[in-house]
């Protein structure tokens, strides 16, 4: 699978700050996914224009981390959400 696919957060799925638990969550149909810092950073970079590769590049620059380490994590995380229909590819 290529990294030029563009992930989008579909209608019916949204991020939410859970003030009671002090965490960020991703809410979708019958799903409430507690997000760690990495997940929050990746989802924040999903803007409907960046491709998977762009997101990896963006996070690599922002966190000063090697892109070849970051990219597989980005792809695995977002593909995992896509399997649950919490992410769509444009």
């Amino acid at each position: 699978m290529t990294t030029d696919r563009i992930p989008v957060i579909p209608r019916g799925v949204r991020r939410h700050h859970d003030a009671v638990r002090g965490r960020e969550v991703l809410l979708g149909p019958e799903r409430a996914l507690m997000l760690d810092d990495t997940a929050v950073a990746i989802l924040a970079a999903v803007d409907g224009t960046r491709s998977l590769g762009d997101i990896a590049g963006h996070l690599s620059a922002a966190y000063n981390a090697p892109r070849d380490v970051i990219e597989p994590d980005v792809v695995a995380f977002l593909d995992g959400l896509a399997d649950q229909m919490l992410i769509a590819y444009a």
Binding site: H16, D18, V20, R21, V25, L27, E30, A32
Partner: peptide
Amino acid sequence: FREAAEMGVLQ
């Protein structure tokens, strides 16, 4: 609904 949200219900 407000009580639920205040105690941590998300959905």
